[in-house]
Computed example of a mutant assay.
Amino acid sequence: MVGRLSFRHLNPDWNAEPNAPDVKLTVEGNTVQLTFLLNSWAYDARKAETGTLRFIGCSRWRWDSTNDHAWFAGRGLYSKQAPKWGEFYEVIGDSRPIGEDDWEVLSPDGPKSLQFLFYFRDDTIEVVAEDWSLARQMPGAG
């Protein structure tokens, strides 16, 4: 059961490429990284520039195939609650039970754990971690 939720918008001045973000997820220990193409049409990003969200102190994550069509039809995760599709949020107040069949569990959630949600065009990715950061990179830079 999802209780009363609020969503803190975390990407007001950047976003993923809306059509083909080419999302890649990697896990190293308790760090999860999402790498994707940045949106160069609506934000200050260059063509082919990537963003890497790094979640440290990650206890669990899930990659859901909910896309924009399902979300707008009211069938997607938080489709009736989240303010807008295609954004990155901290989710506050989620009380859904945690089933290991739904999540890739790395460790128990800690007292500093926060829940993050990113709606990409064809996927929804949730991460529970202590913190996050964004790094940007051009191809070939390094």
Rank of each mutant, 00 (worst) to 15 (best):
D102M: 13
V27C: 09
L53T: 03
T31Y: 01
L5G: 03
A42G: 13
P18F: 05
A48G: 06
F7D: 03
L38S: 05
T52H: 06
T52E: 02
T35Q: 13
E130L: 03
Y78A: 07
G76H: 09
K47I: 14
E49D: 08
S59A: 10
V91T: 04
L117Y: 08
N67M: 12
K47H: 11
E90G: 00
T124D: 05
S6H: 12
G74S: 04
F120M: 07
Y119T: 05
D22Y: 10
R62P: 06
P139C: 03
F36S: 07
F55H: 01
N30K: 15
A73V: 02
V27R: 05
G140L: 10
R54S: 13
F7N: 05
L34D: 06
G3F: 01
G51F: 00
A45P: 06
E126Y: 00
P12K: 10
A135N: 12
H9Q: 08
F120D: 07
Y43V: 01
L106T: 10
P83M: 00
Q137W: 07
V27E: 11
E104C: 08
A141N: 12
K24T: 14
H69R: 14
A45G: 04
I92S: 03
P18Q: 04
R4Q: 08
V2G: 10
E130A: 13
D68C: 11
R4Y: 07
E126M: 04
L25A: 14
Y43F: 15
W14T: 05
G142V: 06
D68W: 12
R75S: 05
W41R: 15
A129P: 10
T31P: 03
L53M: 08
L38A: 10
S40F: 15
D64H: 14
E104Y: 06
G110V: 06
R8V: 15
R4D: 07
V32K: 00
T31I: 05
A16L: 02
D101M: 12
G3H: 00
D22G: 10
K84M: 12
F72Q: 12
D101S: 15
H69A: 15
G51R: 02
R136K: 12
N15S: 13
V27T: 12
D94R: 06
R8Q: 15
T124Y: 05
F118G: 02
D101E: 14
L114H: 14
W132M: 15
D109G: 07
W14M: 04
I56P: 00
Q33A: 09
P83S: 02
L134N: 03
T124G: 09
F120W: 08
G57E: 10
P21K: 02
L134S: 05
Q81W: 08
D44Q: 15
Y43M: 11
D101N: 15
A129N: 09
F116C: 04
A42C: 14
F118D: 00
S107W: 12
L38Q: 06
V23L: 14
N15R: 09
D102S: 14
G57N: 12
R96D: 13
D68E: 15
Y78P: 00
L114N: 13
